[in-house]
């Protein structure tokens, strides 16, 4: 029973960064902009959060820094894909590269190495409940925003039929731009959760494709808030299971443990299977990936 509870707890904790990123992706993609760059946003968010927390000794300042960093990078992304009409997948990849290059470069400047930031003292870290509660509130809020408010309606139309939105007198470019900006801020918060709550520092490549898993969760969740949340829980569970299985003996050979490599690939394998098994039937926003 305790076992179950602790597995549940770690599932929630490990899902939180995915949920933040997936909700960011939800905003961006419902407004019609593919968001491959969630990964990069998580990287800069996680790093900025760690740096700010180390300097100001407050995880809240850390979160604020993450949001600012995420906004900065997503402003760049939004500029590339909206006014400059770059292919969204290609530009997203560029932003991911940029994040992967900028973070260690700044780390080198600040701390003299390109690996991890120094460790954040225990009492300056984010309590695990914060992000978990925050993530759930976020899902509820976004679900409400999209379904019940004028802004939500605009976002949905921007992704479904932007010309209809424009002919109704709403500025599509602005709706998309702001959605992409918000997406960056949310994904960066996901990154902050990684460095401030789930571990004790930002370390190189610690996002480990979570940005892409968040996208997979979004697709699996049919671009809807609560189903995407459920998909994030599934991936979080795979990760929790991965941690739990380390060092567990093989059932048929009690003196040997399951090779760690096979355990490590579990979340990726689950993502791949989920994406392959169920996505064919889900319908993307009609104008997703198109220029306006």
């Amino acid at each position: 029973m305790d076992e179950m509870l602790s597995l549940l707890g770690s599932t929630l904790r490990l899902s939180a960064p995915l949920i933040f990123a997936a909700m960011g992706g939800l905003l961006s993609e419902r407004s019609g902009v593919i968001h491959i760059a969630l990964e990069g946003m998580m990287m800069v968010g996680g790093f900025a959060a760690a740096v700010a927390t180390l300097s100001f000794h407050s995880p809240l300042v850390g979160c604020a820094a993450a949001v600012i960093a995420g906004l900065a990078f997503s402003a760049l992304y939004a500029a590339l894909v909206i006014p400059f009409r770059a292919n969204q997948v290609v530009a997203g990849t560029a932003i991911n590269f940029l994040a992967a290059g900028v973070v260690p470069s700044v780390s080198k400047l600040l701390y003299g190495n390109t690996g991890s930031t120094p460790s954040i003292p225990l009492d300056e870290r984010l309590h695990w409940a914060g992000p978990v509660v925050g993530a759930i509130v976020l899902v509820a809020g976004l679900a409400l925003l999209l379904a019940k408010t004028p802004v939500g309606l605009w976002i949905r139309f921007a992704g479904e039929h932007p010309h209809a939105l424009a002919s109704a007198g709403v500025n599509v470019i602005r709706v998309r731009f702001l959605s992409v900006l918000a997406a960056g801020a949310l994904a960066a918060m996901g990154g902050a959760t990684l460095s401030l709550s789930l571990s004790s520092a930002y370390s190189r490549n610690m996002t480990a494709a979570r940005g892409f898993m968040a996208l997979a969760a979004l697709i699996f969740g049919k671009w809807k808030a609560w189903p995407a949340f459920a998909a994030c829980l599934l991936f979080g569970f795979a990760e929790a299971l991965q941690n739990r299985l380390q060092g567990v003996a093989l059932p048929w050979k009690p003196d040997e443990t399951i090779p760690v490599q096979f355990i490590q690939m579990l979340p990726y394998l689950v993502t791949l299977v989920v994406l392959a098994g169920f996505v064919g039937r889900s319908r993307a926003p009609k104008a997703l990936g198109t220029q306006f």
């Binding site: 590339l80 009409r85 770059a86 940029l98 290059g101 900028v102 470069s105 080198k108």
Partner: peptide, 18 residues
């Protein structure tokens, strides 16, 4: 890591149709 930054900038500029 500067290569990554330069690569990113090149990809971004090549792809920015506008």
């Amino acid at each position: 890591d500067l290569t990554l930054v330069i690569q990113a900038l090149i990809i971004a500029t090549v792809s920015a149709e506008g």
